[in-house]
Structure formats: C-alpha cells, structure tokens
Design a binder for these strands. Structure first.
Length: 492
RNA sequence: GGACGGGUAGCCAAGUGGUAAGGCAUCGGCCUGCAAAGCCGAUCAUCAUGGGUUCGAUUCCCAUCCCGUCCUCCA
C-alpha cells in the first residue's frame, strides 16, 4: 500500500507519487512574520509536519522548504508605526516563530526568506514580461495578465471565462488592464521599504516569492505544495499562474491544504475574544505536548474544534501513553516471549500505517495505539508480557511517536524559555505555568535521593515520613509509582 | 448572493448501505499501608430536521436549519 492523499488540484484522493523515486520535494507556505503565531497557524504547520514525518517513516527522503514572508503591507505598516527598520521588526517574530515550532516538535524545514531573493524575483518578472504575461504600469508596478493564462482558476475551481471586466475597478489600481490582474511587483511609495532592481525600484507582490523560491530550491516541477486552506485562492492560484507561465511546465503536482480550526465552536477572531497565540496557551499553563496532540487529533482535512476542555483531555491522553511507555521501560518482566504480544505490536503498527496512508487519518492511528496500550496493560497485570516482547511493544510506540512526537517528558524545559520571554516582555505568568516549571526544579539525582529516603521509610513502615516525601515530590511535579517491582517515577 | 466542506453520546471525535472506533468525563468493582498507575464492568448515540430511493440509510438523493472556508493580500 501507499499513501493516498487528497489533492486540491484534482479534487480527489490520489495515490501519492513522486517524480524521483523515494524522494519528496515539498514546499510549504510559512508565516508572515508580523506577529506571534496563533494556534490556527500551528494547526497547519503541525499537519504539514505530520505529513513530513509520515513520508520519512515511509522511506522517503524529504526535501522540505518553507518561506518566511518578511515583507508585506502589514509588516511595513507595523514596523513604521514602531519606528524600527523592517528587518529588526521581522527578526523578532521570525525568532519567536522558530522557537514556537521547536515547542511543538515541528521538524525544521529549510527556510527561504523573501527579502533574500529580491534580485531573482526581478529577473523572474522580467522574463514573464518578455513572454507577455506581465505588464508594467505607469507608476512602475507590474501586473500579471490573467487573460493570457487560460488555465487560471484550475486549483480553486473558479471559472473566470465568463468574467467581464466591468467599470468597477479599484481606484488605487486604475492602471490595471483587468480588475482580476494581480500585482507581482509594487512600485515604491514614499516612506516604504523598497529595493532597487533590474526592473526598477519597488517591492515584491505577495505571490512572487513563493514561485521564485520554490522553483529555485526544488525545480520547476516538484511534488507537493502545502498551505492553509485560505491560501488556495488567490495565493496558490496566482503562484501556479506565474510559475507555469514562466516555465511552461506543471508546477506542484500535489496541493495539500489543512482546514481551519474553530475555537470553542466558533471562528477564532480577536473581536470574538477567542484568539490565542501558542504563547498565550503556554502562559496559561498548557503543555506544548497537549497542544500538539490536540492539533493532531483531528484529520487535517476536517475542521478541528479547539477547546480548553479538549486541551485538558489531550493532556490526560498523552499521560496515559507516557505511563504506558514508562511501564515498558522500567518494568521487570519474566524471561521468554509471548507470541500474542509480538502479534499485537505488529498489528498495531500495521493499523497505524494503514490509517495514516488513508489521507493521514490521525485519530485512527491514535485509536490503534490506545487499543494496544489497553491490551498490553492488561497483559502486564497478569504477567503475560515477557522480556522479549518489550522491544516489539516499544517499537510500535516509537512508530507512533515518530509521527505524533508527544511522548518525551520535555515540556518543562521547553516552557522555561517561554517563561523567560514572558518575564522580559512583562507578560503575566499563570500559577499553572509556575507549577509546571516546578517539575524541572529537582535534578534526577535529587529525585533519586528523595526516593531512596522514601523507600527506606516505607520499608520501616514509617508512613508519615514516606507520605511527606511523596507529597513533596508531587508538589515538585514528580509522579511516583510504587509497584511490586519497585519504585518508578517521571516528570509530570 | 455564488462555490465548496461539515453537523455522530456530557466533551473531542473515527467510521460504515445491514443500527456505530478511540480518547476524556461519570458510576461501581479489583489492586493498593496511602497514593499513583493499571485492569474489569456499567451508564451515555432515535448518527441536525423533514422527505425520498432501497429488503434495509447514520452512510445515497432532495429540501430546510445551523456552523465554517473562499469569492484579491487571513493558516
């Protein structure tokens, strides 16, 4: 079997195929760095990351490029309002974005910054102009002539054939030949950032950077292009027009568009008061792993309802799997092997693979691992898990984690950097976050020392002392479990 | 208004032409010095509403209501 993916271009689920065997070349639209990333942004980036990880798990080498849009109207407006150069302004948010992706265990793609490719964009536009796809207006802007590109609309399934260019043309854009034509290059305006180039001064239009950078990094035709569903039109439609007009060849073969999320059942918006950046959530005391898990719990192809209740549930779910893993790594098992367990691990791995191959059905993959955990936990209790079964079970869990990336107990160190940032920015830090930070306060040695004391007290049946120590450790975010095989612990 | 996607238990949700995964929550039990973790059992779904097709629909078709995305710069 192979991965079957919904392709926006064909409007169908298709078998994913690459141009070169075992190699994927993909381009994902990244952030416009004008503010901190919100959870909607990260829903998209997590979805793309899951695709990336599953492709690697499937044996592909993945060449993954992501743009950083570091010049646009909003950036120019905000930076001038703050009185700082564009680069200073964008550097801050780019840094924050990259830290955020680390928080969520998003594998880092190769980055391509718009402002570092301005000369190439100018050349690209010059060639399009030479081919007649682009025209220059009196003020020095350049527009793409949609009428020259009959396939326009094939991605968004819009029919522009019957469109009449009416008299209803935007006042600012009176020079365009057709209202539908879009800017590939914007003439400079007083006080705005602009670049001197071979086609004159100005700055790039919104779409040109992606055409230029993706083709530069991945070739004129590559395997997959991703971005939020809102980018289908006009952004990706325009990219296709520019790129295919330029090269005369098909641009990306697969188009991957994660759907939007809702927050508490409603559209996320600042005015509705349900707008959250990733950092907002962390400051409220939510773990990055819970957030990632929740974002991955609904297929990318359907809308996700992001709720705080769901976030709590996600944390408990992740804990369950972490506990299961702890049992596997710290337990003592009778010698030998139980074929049932090996079979269970294999079936689980197969189920997860089949689920993900089915257009990345993440909840079914999760169901498979939970089924395994339940069955294996029951087998644990009855002593039916043997030494030789452990690697197989752990292996299935690892396969799961290669995709979902939530099982490491590393939330506390990650949160620490956010807490420091919050302090520097003068943001409020919740009690919950302070509590989470606690779990990193004691070193492994200190924890083990306390545990030794506790065990000694328990052996002496000095329960008041052992209970006091347990309480102390719990307060420090350490979960202690006493089992018949001895004591084990992990950071909550 | 047009195009498209969705409405499944208290919550998040998968899925199917033959009455429905998984997680969370709730209740009871087992285990346990306590706790934690785990297991077992139970409760919980007329699958938005109204029609139609069919031996049979939650799954296909139509209508209605609701939600979301896009219809030029929002992931």
């Amino acid at each position: 079997m192979a991965l079957r993916l919904y392709n926006t271009l064909s409007g169908k689920i298709e078998e994913f195929q690459t141009l070169q065997k075992n190699q994927v070349r993909m381009y994902a639209c990244g952030p416009t760095v004008y503010d901190y990333g919100h959870i909607g942004n990260f829903r998209t980036f997590v979805a793309v990351d899951i695709l990336h990880r599953f492709l690697e798990q499937s044996g592909y080498t993945v060449q993954h490029v992501m743009n950083i849009t570091d010049v646009d109207d909003k950036i120019i407006r905000n930076s001038s309002r703050e009185g700082v150069p564009v680069q200073t302004y964008t550097a801050k948010y780019e840094k924050a974005f990259l830290e955020d992706t680390l928080l969520l265990n998003i594998a880092q793609p190769k980055l391509a910054r718009a402002t570092e490719h301005i000369p190439e964009m100018a050349e690209f536009i010059a060639k399009l102009e030479a081919k007649g796809f682009v025209y220059r207006t009196e003020d020095g802007s350049y527009y793409f002539r949609i009428a020259k590109f009959p396939a326009y609309g094939k991605l968004s399934k819009k029919d522009f054939g019957g469109m009449q260019d009416g008299a209803r043309v935007d006042v600012d854009e009176y020079e365009k030949d057709s209202a539908r034509d879009f800017a590939v290059w914007k003439a400079p305006k007083p006080g705005e950032a602009s670049w001197e180039t071979s086609i004159g001064p100005g700055r790039p239009g919104w779409h040109i950077e992606c055409s230029v950078m993706s083709m530069e990094e991945l070739g004129e035709t590559f395997d997959l292009h991703a971005g939020g569903e809102d980018l289908i039109f006009p952004h990706h439609e325009n990219e296709i027009a520019q790129s295919e007009a330029y090269s005369g060849k098909p641009f990306a073969r697969f188009w991957f568009h994660p759907r939007f999320l809702l927050v508490e059942g409603e559209k996320m918006s600042k005015s509705a008061g349900n707008f959250y950046t990733l950092r907002d959530l962390v400051l409220k005391g939510h773990k990055p792993s819970s957030i990632r898990y929740l974002l991955a719990s609904v297929p990318y192809s359907t809308q996700l309802n992001f709720t705080f209740d769901g976030l709590k549930q996600a944390e408990v779910s992740v804990d369950r799997l972490r506990n299961f893993r702890l049992r596997l790594t710290s337990g003592q098992f009778p010698a030998g092997a139980n074929p049932e367990m090996t079979k269970l691990a294999q079936e689980t791995t197969d189920r997860m693979r089949a689920a993900l191959e089915d257009d990345l059905n993440t909840p079914q993959a999760q169901a498979a691992i939970f089924d395994m955990a339940r069955t294996a936990n029951a087998a644990f209790d009855s002593g039916a898990v043997k030494q030789d079964d452990v690697p197989a079970l752990l292996g299935a869990l690892d396969k799961f984690n290669e995709i979902f990336a939530v099982l490491r107990d590393d939330d506390a160190p990650k949160i620490k950097s956010i807490a420091e940032w919050a302090k520097a920015e003068g943001r409020d830090i919740s009690q919950e976050l302070l509590g989470l930070l606690q779990s990193d306060a004691l070193s492994d040695e200190q924890v083990n020392g306390k545990l030794a004391e506790m065990e000694a007290a328990r052996k002496a049946r000095n329960f008041p002392v052992s209970d006091a120590i347990r309480k102390e450790l719990t307060a420090a975010g350490i979960l202690v479990e006493n089992t018949k095989d001895g004591v084990r612990w992990r950071r909550k």
